[in-house]
Design a protein around this nucleic acid. Structure first.
Length: 602
RNA sequence: CGGGAUGUAGCGCAGUUUGGUAGCGCGCUUCGUUCGGGACGAAGAGGCCGUGGGUUCAAGUCCCACCAUUCCGACCA
């Protein structure tokens, strides 16, 4: 392609709208353009990058036995009502764009496609003989993100590869899951990314495995905890660890103490001169279920630890049926404002004990009249601990489970693991923290959707069974920006060869020089014939402008038809290293062929 | 959803305090010189100053409402 005939616009100054370097570079280099919050145009260069990535994804998915298809973006609400996700997605999370058609039918723009694919499977797959099946698509998704940011990293309209598999057994699912994991590793490796595979939260579905593929970058929104031995890596939402051992308590008998202005753990420890590891902290949450019931949850956890709300939400989801519900809609800390919805009398905030009496709740049809009491494992072993006295201004010390307090009925891991904690698999290892951009996620779904939507097949023994499902996603547009975040310098983008929009850019320093022009045109034609994707900068610009632009847009190899022409040579510059060499004109095609092949991972 | 900030030419910004006919740099057009790392000179084009209302002889500037964009947060007792 000739630059002179392309829509090619680069910006000299950093756009004010962008915060992180990859976003700034994509805007400056003319790859993307914002059209609304979280809504981007993929300009021609960007589209080529996205096509390259899509093609790699396609090749690896096909090689792993998946079939490509294309599902609708516009989806009828009743599919989502069937799966039970309409309310969660339009109200609770509010992440789904919904609309009404002219007949007032409710519709949604697809944020994901489990409902559609499950419907297809239900209609088309009747027998175990047809299984397993693995389908995928590459397509635009819509999500009304709470806060779109960082350009394509969190956009409201974005391109995703999503795949879904259907099986008769967990063994078969695990088999496909493992093949998908390998396909994903191949994809990200071929895209030239440095990534980590981490254990991820499997959500409220329970039991099922789930892994995320993280591109390591400080701008990433996810925190990863890992060990240096390479054995363990997990998203902080999911991570487990061994907490530090508690200190021994200085309080050997039970006593109520006046502790004025000690409504935080730090203050009470300071006041009592004790370690926060011997305090039982009691955090009050209010959980709302889709049955309309509100449940007050009192979580007891060691004073130095924090509640992992993802783990807590998973526990609460499993209890949904106790409250006539299918799912948990929202979970938040009960603060002074939200108490007004349910409190019978003012709570002793900051001084709550594990046995906070139920009569603080004004029970009603909507509000469950008993606290749901849970404890993190960290408090179970505590002896002679400190906790609130259910009275403002007072704590108790030297308390013990089984004496002054009853251990809550539900004991679970509700604690947030942190960097510095010891690893579960080997206490010699400590967890380290890194940030990552989630570019892929694979998931053993099980029968959640097939059961909810009554998607069944006839098994070998003649019985009807729900499909066992897996799902597999890659953020294609996010991946493209993640690659830039990981690979750039002060001059601009450095695309990995495999996903660069073009392999080579030929810069003609002076287009009025007939020889330069002729040699450049000649090389351009020969490269194209050889299948090497080439840009020809034949614009009537000064050399400096062309060099700056070439660096900015990040084409891996630059040929300059300049001074060395006298010796029958052109200059070849590698974008990543700035390494420059002179090569004979007749060797150009061969040399580039070798370099480009050496850089591809096929 | 809460809080903050910002909306002025394609991009980056000044002008708003103290109301008085719209500015700068880059980019764009034309001409000349220059020509291997974002050249120089000259001449131009380009703006319902986010939208709507109000105050005033007069509003980019003051007041009210709305919209949009963006940042922080949505978190612990």
């Amino acid at each position: 392609m000739r630059l002179s005939s392309m829509l090619f616009v680069t910006l000299r100054e950093e756009p004010a709208e962008a915060e992180i370097v990859s976003h700034k570079l994509l805007l400056r280099a003319g790859y993307i353009r914002r059209i609304g919050s979280g809504i981007y145009c993929y300009l021609p260069l960007m589209w080529r990058v996205l096509q390259k990535i899509s093609q790699i994804v396609r090749e690896e998915m096909n090689a792993a036995g998946a079939e490509e298809c294309l599902l609708p973006q516009l989806q009828p609400a009743d599919l989502w009502q069937e799966s039970g996700r309409w309310d969660t997605y339009t109200k609770a999370e509010g992440i789904m764009f919904s609309l009404q058609d002219r007949q007032n039918r409710l519709m949604a723009l697809g944020p994901t496609h489990e409902e559609v694919i499950t419907t297809i499977a239900r209609e088309l797959i009747k027998s175990y003989r047809q299984l397993p099946v693995n389908l995928y698509q590459i397509q635009t998704k819509f999500r009304d993100e709470i806060r779109p940011r960082f350009g394509l990293l969190r956009a409201r309209e974005f391109i995703m590869k999503d795949g879904y598999s259907f099986h008769t057994s967990w063994e078969c699912l695990q088999n496909t899951y493992a093949r998908m994991e390998q396909a994903y590793r191949n994809i990200f490796t071929r895209c030239g990314l440095s990534f980590k595979v981490v254990e991820a939260d499997s959500g409220a579905i329970g039991g099922a495995a789930s892994q995320e593929f993280m591109v390591l970058a400080n701008a990433g929104e996810d925190e990863i905890l890992y060990t240096d031995d390479g054995v363990y890596a997990a998203n902080v939402e999911k991570a487990v660890s061994l907490p530090p051992s508690p200190a021994s308590s200085p309080f050997h008998f039970y006593q109520k103490k006046e502790t004025p202005d000690c409504e935080t753990i730090a203050k009470v420890c300071d006041f009592l001169n004790c370690s926060d590891t011997i305090v039982v902290k009691n955090v009050l949450y209010q959980a709302l279920y889709d049955s309309g019931k509100m449940v007050l949850v009192l979580v007891s956890i060691r004073g130095d630890q924090e509640v992992n709300e993802v783990k807590l939400a998973n526990q609460l989801s499993q209890l949904a049926s106790q409250y006539d519900a299918k799912s948990l809609l929202s979970l938040k800390v009960a603060d002074e404002i939200s108490q007004s919805q349910w409190a019978a009398k003012p709570l002793p905030l900051g001084y709550i004990a594990p046995d906070l009496p139920d009569d603080y709740i004004a029970a009603s049809d909507r509000v469950v009249g008993k606290f749901l009491r849970m404890a993190d494992q960290t408090v179970v072993e505590l002896k002679d601990f400190v906790t609130g006295a259910n009275e403002s201004g007072y704590h108790v010390v030297g308390a013990n489970w089984g004496k002054e307090f009853t251990l809550p009925p539900i004991i679970a891991d509700l604690r947030k693991a942190r960097a510095g904690d010891r690893a579960v698999h080997n206490p010699q290892q400590t967890l380290k923290s890194a940030r990552g951009i989630e570019v892929g996620h694979i998931f053993q779904l099980g029968t959640k959707y097939s059961t909810a939507m009554e998607a069944t097949y006839t098994a070998e023994d003649g019985s009807e069974k729900p499909f066992i499902m897996g799902c597999y996603g890659i953020g294609v547009s996010r991946l493209a920006q993640a690659a830039v975040e990981q690979s750039h310098d002060s001059d601009g983008i450095i695309w990995p060869v495999a996903i660069a929009p073009y392999h080579v850019i030929i810069v003609i320093p002076n287009v009025t020089d007939a020889e330069q022009l002729k040699v450049a045109e000649d090389i351009y034609n020969r490269l194209n014939e050889a299948g090497i994707e080439t840009l020809l900068d034949d614009r009537d610009e000064r050399a400096g402008v062309k060099f700056k632009d070439a660096d900015l847009i990040g084409i891996p190899y630059r040929l300059v038809t300049g001074r060395a022409l006298k010796e029958g040579k052109v200059e070849l510059v590698e974008r990543a290293t700035k390494h420059s060499q002179l090569i004979p004109i007749e060797d150009v095609v061969e040399t580039l062929h070798q370099k480009i092949n050496a850089n591809s991972y096929k």
